[in-house]
Nucleic acid binder design. Sequence first.
DNA 1: GCACCCATGTAACCAGTTACATGATTTG
DNA 2: CAAATCATGTAACTGGTTACATGGGTGC
Lengths: 176, 176
Amino acid sequence: MELSPTAYVVLGMLNLGARTGYDIKGIVDHSTRFFWAASYGQIYPELNRLEKAGLVTGKHAPTGGRKRKEYDLTAAGRKALIEWAAAPPQMPELRDSNLLKLFFADVLPLEQALHQLLMRRLGHEQFLALLRELEARPGDDPPFVDLVLQYGIEYAEFNIEWCKRWEQRLSKKEAA
Amino acid sequence: MELSPTAYVVLGMLNLGARTGYDIKGIVDHSTRFFWAASYGQIYPELNRLEKAGLVTGKHAPTGGRKRKEYDLTAAGRKALIEWAAAPPQMPELRDSNLLKLFFADVLPLEQALHQLLMRRLGHEQFLALLRELEARPGDDPPFVDLVLQYGIEYAEFNIEWCKRWEQRLSKKEAA
DNA sequence: GCACCCATGTAACCAGTTACATGATTTG
DNA sequence: CAAATCATGTAACTGGTTACATGGGTGC
């Protein structure tokens, strides 16, 4: 049975303590969303599929009159999560529309192309600030959760430095 | 009129000298595909849409008895490309299923999690080798086309170094 | 009483991949 | 003559987003 990465997000978040679909969405939105988002339109149908497949169990657990369903991983679900986590990774893939813009930036006058580079840098600076906030938030995350946050931070820093470096090189060209 | 990034790939490749849908696919496959792929299933319908929208013109230009349609940017098409290239970039987005795997790697024994890190590195080493080949290929690309290739190379290098660094740190932990 | 949070779900849409179907021309 | 390359397209499917619809609970 082939599961989508999003299915593993659901499984993984249940493993990290999420109980409801709403919980999953909440946790995703301040953790994996930076490299793997999930919307309600995916999460709820996915929970149902996983329940049918026997990887999670759902139990109605309303709070007062409010509809609510709590989920847990089954042994099979936990096994599926572990197997996926240990499986060989995909070939690296980048998907960056801003890089696409840069790729075609020869259609612009150098000054405007340079401006695009600057904007890219600004974007990554904002991104970095966001991740720094997450980092500063108290509470201790599991080691690999933290590792990935560190990755995000260093990725943003790499991009900022890369932009700066080329901004300098290209503005020398412009001056010449 | 909102166009998809893929529409701009088509426009941009025509601008770089592609004439047919087949040409576009060929160029994409050894340039932008590393950060923005495009399949025939997108390219041909997109060319038709763009023609209807007046951004490209198509002319039947068979080679012998072989069906063939040559496209060119119209003035409007070129304008659309330039405007898009100069428009503010999107907020940076990462989409990396391997990072997702790492995020949940706490379910694994440390030794296996470490192995995943190693595999990630290997993936990026292969990726780097591929880009190095592209770089070595003779022919001089427009400056920004080359810039993006350099980005890919440095991105791969950044990832390799990042993995190495954490492999070391975590294997010390394992030993302890 | 109002706003915000908790909570679940569906329907329409959009983007993109894969597989299929077809056929001519060129190169070894 | 076979294999690779040139060339165009469609159909089915998958994955994902957005908007919509609904309604109870909590805190100001």
